[in-house]
């Protein structure tokens, strides 16, 4: 009996957006009289950081500080349509809709500023700190909030914009499968090292290293959060989790976290990750979806590492101690024969 180490790798691609497209999301942007720019939509914040990411995209496009942007979402009466938070689609779909809405609002804002400064709107730029000024002439400057207020109270103009992103709907040919099912593909590759106890069958993930290519990151910390969380989920799927321990039988189904085992902090190795940035043609500022793909490379990489450590051919998940011990028994029988 021994503790054996092995390494494994896996490379994956992942589609952005709902399968076959046709999934619109809309956004509205307007300036308030209190100096805010409000992005209104009906997408759902699941903790992934939707509001943060869309505020960044709106601030970037409007040319105003991040703090000036308010994201108001999750209400079907006040927010325009969203096709749901899922399918790694929200940053891509809502992000593009926010860009469209923010562009329209920005143009309106520059038009008002142009009247106030008596210049052409084409000559105006935003400094991202809350000011609009004439290109190359920083002194000829106005605060964006003042421009918004003047628009409302002096010029009778609403600083606002509408945006929609509707990826074209495709059909899947029932015979050949011919279709245009996604907007783009993101990519990842993971290498893990495991240690397997051949007496108990227990597997420990010692290290997990990944590289992701996701177009462009809107927020590197939130991307890292997805990757580390996905590595954790991948360890759970690869080694522990099942609602049917003797699938397909329905007996012994778990009913709480005492018998549905998910990894704890002690089971987490250090996760290293790097991001490659190749802006995508269709994404908002080049972003692809990263939300769902993050467990997909860790799972097969862990199984490959176990197979590498033991010189066995396990092809099922989760690889519980029982699965490991049965694989070792089978190998011993085969080697003996």
């Amino acid at each position: 009996m021994a503790k054996l180490r092995g390494t494994g790798m896996a490379a994956v691609n992942y589609p952005t957006g709902m399968h076959l497209g046709g999934d619109p999301t809309m956004a509205l942007v307007h300036a308030t009289s209190s100096g805010s720019f409000v992005v209104t939509l009906s997408s759902v914040e699941l903790g992934q950081g939707l509001k943060t990411v869309l505020a960044q995209i709106a601030a970037e496009t409007l040319g105003v500080p991040l703090e000036a942007v308010v994201v108001d979402t999750g209400d079907t009466d006040t927010g325009p349509h969203c096709s749901g938070t899922g399918a790694s689609r929200t940053t891509h779909r809502a992000g593009n809709a926010v860009i469209a809405a923010a562009k329209e609002a920005r143009q309106e804002m520059l038009d008002v500023a142009a009247e106030m400064l008596e210049v052409s709107a084409d000559d105006l730029v935003t400094d991202g700190k809350g000011n609009i000024h004439v290109k190359g002439v920083v002194e000829k400057s106005l605060p964006a909030a003042e421009v918004a207020a003047a628009g409302q109270f002096v010029y009778g103009k609403s600083i606002s914009g509408r945006g929609i992103f509707l990826p074209p709907a495709s059909k899947q040919d029932p015979e050949t499968g011919e279709s245009a099912p996604y907007s783009t593909q993101a990519h990842a590759c993971t290498v893990v090292e495991v240690e397997v106890d051949t007496e108990t069958g227990a597997v420990r993930v010692l290290s997990l290293k990944s590289v992701y290519e996701i177009g462009r990151q809107v927020n590197p910390e939130l991307v890292k959060g997805q990757i580390v969380g996905g590595a954790w989920m991948g360890i759970g799927h690869a080694l522990y989790e099942t609602t049917a321990p003797y699938y397909p039988a329905i007996d012994h189904a778990p009913y709480d976290f005492l018998n549905y085992v998910i990894p704890g902090a002690a089971e987490m190795p250090e996760v290293q990750c790097e991001i490659l940035e190749y802006p995508s043609e269709t994404g908002p500022y080049g972003a692809k979806g990263v939300g769902e793909m993050v467990a997909n490379a860790p799972i097969p990489a862990i199984v490959n590492a176990i197979n590498n450590a033991l010189d066995v051919c396990i092809g099922e998940i989760p690889v519980t101690p029982e699965v490991v011990l049965r694989a070792l028994e089978e190998k011993a029988r085969a080697d003996g024969a």
């Binding site: 943060t52 960044q56 995209i57 601030a59 991040l66 462009r216």
Partner: peptide
């Protein structure tokens, strides 16, 4: 400017 920055989750 803002896109690409590791700003805090709201």
């Amino acid at each position: 400017n803002v896109v690409g920055q590791p700003v805090k989750l709201r």
